[in-house]
Design a protein around this nucleic acid. Structure first.
Lengths: 213, 213, 213, 213
DNA sequence: AATGAATGAGTTTTCATTCAT
DNA sequence: GATGAATGAAAACTCATTCAT
């Protein structure tokens, strides 16, 4: 990457950072382009070289931050030797929830945007930008996907449930705090997977555990 | 209600109708107070006699429309002689989904706002406005709520799951159309209820069916 | 006209005056809405209550100023006892040219916009605004129009010729000054009328002259 | 012309073409330098190597396109054996009108710019650029100009009349289509020439026709 | 000679809110 | 209560021009 491209990248990131900071502190609506460029330390026109408008940068931010969340969760998963798919899923969800608990600002921003649409976009555009190879992550989780009927529907339901539930529980402790909610949530996720299962876990599955170790 | 009050009511409703139409067709953000009053056929100042600002009328609309949806579902339920609570819940959800399928505009608007927060508000504010006695509806469904551990969490999870899932499936057929999704969704809802059950359904429960008739 | 309408009229005229002054002194392109409202002494938003944009007020100004010119010429004509149509036309043209000579700013502005399109619009919209009854003026001039083949084409050619010719001759003395040009111009106008004449002027025409006196 | 000069010429022409296309499709005012360079496929800075600003390229385009029109008309005239000056003029005008009818975009652009000022400029700058020797064309038409009083005024009036009249008649068929207008227009042009004539055409003029053959 | 990223002053446009009628 | 003209701060967006590469 030459000097010019490096500089472009720097400006783009400065705008991203400024926008994220402002969107999460004052809200998208009350954040103006002027605010963003002032904070990013670039000229007004520069903004329009990189983004169409406020909503463009917001969408790109959502995709960016979402994929980061998944990437982190995937990375953490790889540090473990969990083998059972069901356990992997629970681990990922738990990790993501914990990320949100740690960074409520992030949750406020991504909020209900951690939806299937965004997730799908991340998958499809994978490799397009600087975003990671999400497709890999997704498939690494569902490499044994043959075991499920309609795995896409299954993932969809899990994402939507977790996304919506976290928002309320983490940010407002409504109807209960997230820790109190977790057992029920994980049970629901577990049940969704069970409902989609085509074959019962067999000894050979257990054998795979052995491989992991 | 005298003539003046009738006139006031008429203006209020004209504003509601105009706002709903505009919010759903151009979005809340791109709808201005001017748009609303122009469409409602009232003067701009009049708006401020009834509502604080754009977000005030939107929230009131959400509550209004949401409660209408539940009221309709509840009314339909009463026409049946379903007794089992689990069946009642599924019936209600199915009815609501069908309302959304029929009126996608409504779904677009309520969209992700059919969340726990709003639902709770409806319950709490019940009786406040011209809105119906929601509390009754809710409790009529959960009159046998003693059977569940943490019924609030249960309802919360169901509402969030259904709301989020419908949005994508009905409006965008993503990841699949709503009809294809229903079996899995109902199964998930069923499982959530099962997970919260404290006692197994007994013969006496079945006997209640007889009472319904 | 009540107080509010009077006030509106006053603002509208203040905007017109300011715009005309600025358009003629710095040009339409270099005049901003801010300039106009500052000069008019009204708020920025007020401009948009009366006009769509800069070009809207310009067009309305052209129509306004054009009709004023014709009205003045018509008024002057009525002070004379010229009866012959040909003489009337020459009188009107001469009067208009003299108005432009006196007020070159006006000519600069109306410039080549004193075209058939604008003229036609004035005729059609006559009575619409506060503009005078132009239709009457036009027809008072061509009341004996039966004498001409295609009087509309005739008037069209005269207007376009005079408009284009004045611009160059009065403002830049190109190719010659207006006074030097007049004989040729009037001759050309005369010839255009002659070419469109269906019948020769008769004694009865002359008799009309007597009526005028 | 070496390779570098050829490349420069290519860029210059690309800019001309792009500008012409944009000026005629969206108007000069709404065309930005960015639009032009984007369409021309050159960098923004390159524009400034060839032209001062938007108006510079526009003026050069007008001169370029105008002279092309006259050159084509002159070329067509030379293919005939028309000798009488009056007939030559009518032929030229007819040819130019037909060019405009064929290419309305061109008329829209040149529009009212086909005025005396531009015409004069073409004559004066003749030979300056790659433009043809217009002076020759003009004088070839008026070689027998001695027959006219004030030939410059005469040409001026004809150009202005034809230019203004074509704009409305060809583009908008207002007040009538160009074909219907032609007889009156040619008659008017004829009359203008007659009015400027110092001597009557004589037999010796007719004799010249013989010379043409 | 050619590029195109960056600039930022300048312009247009919006719109919630007020208040005299 | 109802009106709607007026406001003006604030926002979005443009674009000619420069200059380092």
């Amino acid at each position: 990457m030459n000097k010019i491209d490096k500089n472009k990248q720097k400006k783009r990131e400065a705008l991203f950072d400024a926008a994220f900071h402002l969107f999460t502190s004052k809200g998208t609506h009350k954040t103006s382009i002027s605010d963003i460029v002032d904070n990013a330390g670039v000229a007004k026109g520069t903004f329009y070289l990189y983004f169409k408008d406020k909503y463009d940068i917001r969408n790109k931010l959502i995709a960016h931050k979402s994929s980061e969340i998944f990437r982190k969760a995937d990375f953490a998963l790889r540090q473990t030797n969990i083998c059972l798919l069901e356990e992997k899923v629970i681990f990922i969800i738990d990790n993501i929830i914990n990320q949100f608990v740690t960074d409520k600002t992030l949750l406020e921003f991504i909020s209900k945007n951690l939806s299937w649409g965004v997730f799908k976009n991340i998958l499809l555009e994978a490799g397009g930008d600087d975003e990671v190879d999400f497709y890999d992550i997704y498939h690494s989780v569902f490499e044994g996907a043959g075991k499920f009927r309609n795995p896409e529907v299954m993932v969809f339901m899990m994402i939507e449930l977790v996304g919506a539930v976290c928002y309320s529980a983490i940010l407002y402790s409504e109807p209960v705090g997230i820790e109190e909610l977790k057992p029920y949530l994980f049970r629901a996720v577990q049940d969704i997977m069970t409902a989609h299962r085509t074959v019962e876990p067999t000894v050979s599955d257990s054998a795979q555990i052995g491989d992991c170790l």
